[in-house]
Design a protein around this nucleic acid. Structure first.
Length: 437
RNA sequence: GUGGGUAUAGCUCAGUUGGUUAGAGCGCCAGGUUGUGGCCCUGGAGGCCGUCGGUUCGAGCCCGAUUAUCCACCCCA
């Protein structure tokens, strides 16, 4: 059987067997964000191309070669979002949220699109959980974001991950530093790689991040931003460190983190793992004080991060993290014959209306096959429904784990009786657990 | 965009120096007496061996191309 076509390169289907894990991860992240005062925000999957050109930056790889850009039927240039911050900031400006109470704290779970060559932990359509805190210039906001990210990772059972932080300066101190950097690297034009030669002109800061061995060696002796921060940036960074230490969040300073999106300034940070291959950045973010103004909003600072949900799930697996089991079927009804099947459908419907997860046979299989099916569903109880039961108006409910049988009437009180039975089991489970303690 | 590996059943993989009807385990389906799951036993369905072309009397196996996938560079979540 040949499929008509296949999913596009770099995309993934999420099957019913995967969805429990996804829900668990997304809900945990959004719940924790709410505790920090960040509420979910939903923005369009596509935006005007200009938004990303301005926000992410014309010189970045993301804008230059990775965007899914097309013209719509009225010839407007549209781009599938490659990241989440631009859309959130745009929406905050558009709805004048920044004229109200500050800070504006938003979270999101979105899919992003980048035309890249897929590899471990890198897809063309991928998912991010992210937060943005708009309005506060204080390192308190930076620390809050980092703490939030840290808590999400901890809650989901991720170890094997490290937090790296750095400060890349602001528009006061960075130009001078960049000039120094440029002067330094200009002495090595005969040795730098081709891309770094163009970086020398467009954004010398990015040379520091180059992975080519020769450039790395040259960059190792380059002047460090850390040594050229203005006093405001220095104080800001020092306070951030003080706050992280006060909260007991462990970090390392990595002076080579620059990040590939142009809007970052001052604080940048990454949660990085070595357990999932070369694409080890699970969460990355930082401060972007000029961005809101750049997009036509008020002059206002901001800070945030994005977490790659596919990568997150990869580290979770590598860390041996457990995902709670899905809600099991409380009762499976196995009918024999058409009359019983109709009755079973009705009984199951009553249970479902009462909020009980219940199921019954729809494949008309043998009783043995139905029992096997119930077992695979993980049904807590099963009930066989045949002519005998229908005639008597009573049936036997069997607890699958113990084989214990209980009688139940099939009348009006059926759902109530079953719920009572089920609750008793829960109570005895709790009692058992208590005695074990 | 550049490089390397891989492509055989739904999944994980065997398949000899090229030689008849291509295999295993798991999964799925059905049986193992009359109305009860897990363990065990038996049977069954399911593959144009990624696609196209070439070499050969003969190709799952060799060669080329193409596509997909995995991994790395690059970049980033």
């Amino acid at each position: 059987m040949k499929p008509l076509t296949s999913a596009p390169k770099g995309t993934q289907d999420t099957l019913p067997s995967d969805i429990t894990r996804w829900h668990y991860v997304e809900r945990a992240a959004l719940d924790i964000a709410e505790r920090y005062g960040f509420f979910e925000m939903r923005t369009p999957t596509f935006e005007h191309t200009e938004l990303f050109n301005r926000a992410v930056g014309d010189t970045t790889d993301v804008v230059q070669k990775e965007m899914y850009t097309f013209n719509d039927k009225k010839d407007r240039s549209i781009t599938l979002r490659p990241e989440g911050t631009a859309g959130v900031v745009r929406a905050a400006i558009e709805h004048n949220l920044l004229g109200g109470q500050l800070p504006v704290k938003a979270s999101y779970v979105i899919s992003c699109f980048r035309y890249e060559k897929p590899q471990a932990g890198r897809l063309r359509e991928f998912h991010q959980f992210g937060i943005e805190s708009l309005g506060s210039p204080s390192p308190a906001a930076d620390a809050e974001c980092i703490a939030l990210g840290n808590q999400v990772l901890e809650t989901l059972g991720v170890d094997k991950i490290k937090l790296f932080i750095n400060s890349i300066g602001c528009k006061q101190c960075r130009p001078a530093y960049q000039a120094k950097l440029k002067a330094y690297f200009s002495g090595y034009t005969d040795q730098l790689c081709e891309t770094c030669l163009t970086r020398l002109e467009t954004n010398p800061l990015r040379i520091i991040d180059c992975k080519s061995p020769i450039c790395k060696e040259i960059a190792a002796k380059a002047p460090k931003m850390m040594d050229h921060l203005c006093s405001e940036c220095e104080d800001h960074f020092a306070e951030l460190r003080e706050r992280l230490e006060a909260m007991g969040i462990r970090y390392e300073i990595d002076p080579d983190i620059v990040r590939g999106l142009d809007y970052y300034c001052r604080t940048v940070f990454e949660f990085v793992t070595e357990a999932i291959g070369a694409q080890g950045t699970v969460c990355g973010g930082g401060r972007y004080d000029g961005l809101i103004e750049e997009l036509g909003g008020p002059s206002m600072p901001g800070v945030g991060f994005a977490m790659g949900l596919e990568r997150l799930q990869l580290v979770m697996a590598a860390s041996g993290a457990q995902v709670p089991a899905p809600l099991l079927c409380e009762l499976f009804i196995a009918p024999m014959g058409k009359t019983a099947s109709i009755a079973a459908g009705t009984l199951v419907q009553k249970l479902r209306a009462e909020g009980v997860s219940a199921d019954c046979e729809t494949m008309s299989r043998s009783l043995k096959a139905q029992m096997r099916y119930a077992d695979k569903l993980g049904a807590i109880y099963t009930m066989v429904l045949g002519d005998n039961e229908l005639a008597a108006g009573r049936a036997t409910v069997k607890e699958m784990s113990t084989g214990a049988a209980s009688e139940i009437t099939l009348g009006e009180d059926f759902a109530d009786e079953f719920v009572k039975l089920s609750v008793q089991r829960h109570i005895s489970d709790v009692a058992d657990a208590a005695t074990k303690l």
